[in-house]
């Protein structure tokens, strides 16, 4: 069943939702938000795409397999902890560097990106599995 309204809406909403999810991810650094909720919003965008265009089109669009996203997210989060060791601190200690233009960037962002990828991957994986049923 193709609905013109849904197709048009999804074309407009899909990039907006992805942008919003990125906004939530980075806002979570110092305010409510973060990788988890950001990841959920991104997964909602994928679900909307699947509703409008059908699951096959979505699977073609999401080029990496969701499981790899989960692995990448976990790896990112685990790896962000290693930086603490380089500055003689315990595992997971936040390390910060000052960057021109961006301001201060630190390993907690990396951890949050890991959570984000993990949640997107996990929810998309479940979504694809349920759709096949």
């Amino acid at each position: 069943m193709r609905s013109l309204i849904l197709l048009t809406a999804s074309r407009l909403l899909f990039p907006l939702l992805l942008l919003f999810s990125a906004f939530l991810l980075f806002r979570g650094h110092n305010a409510p938000g973060g990788g988890f909720v950001g990841g959920l919003v991104a997964a909602a965008a994928v679900a909307l795409h699947a509703l409008a265009h059908g699951i096959n089109a979505t699977q073609r669009m999401v080029v990496v397999t969701p499981l790899k996203l989960v692995a990448a997210g976990l790896g990112c989060a685990l790896g962000s902890g290693l930086f603490g060791w380089f500055s003689q601190q315990p595992y997971l200690t936040g390390v910060w560097v000052s960057l021109p233009l961006l301001g201060k960037a630190g390993t907690p962002v990396l951890f949050d990106v890991g959570v984000y990828l993990l949640v997107v991957g996990m929810v998309t994986h479940v979504l694809f599995l349920l759709w096949e049923e």
Binding site: L67, K68, A71, G75, L78, W85, Q89, P90, Y91
Partner: peptide
């Protein structure tokens, strides 16, 4: 310092290996 690393390794090593090999 070595103690800080060694104490985390028994958790980190299997977890990292699982993550990096899950799609292989």
């Amino acid at each position: 310092m070595t103690r800080q690393v060694i104490l985390v390794l028994p958790i980190l090593v299997p977890l990292a290996a699982a993550v990096f090999s899950v799609a292989a």
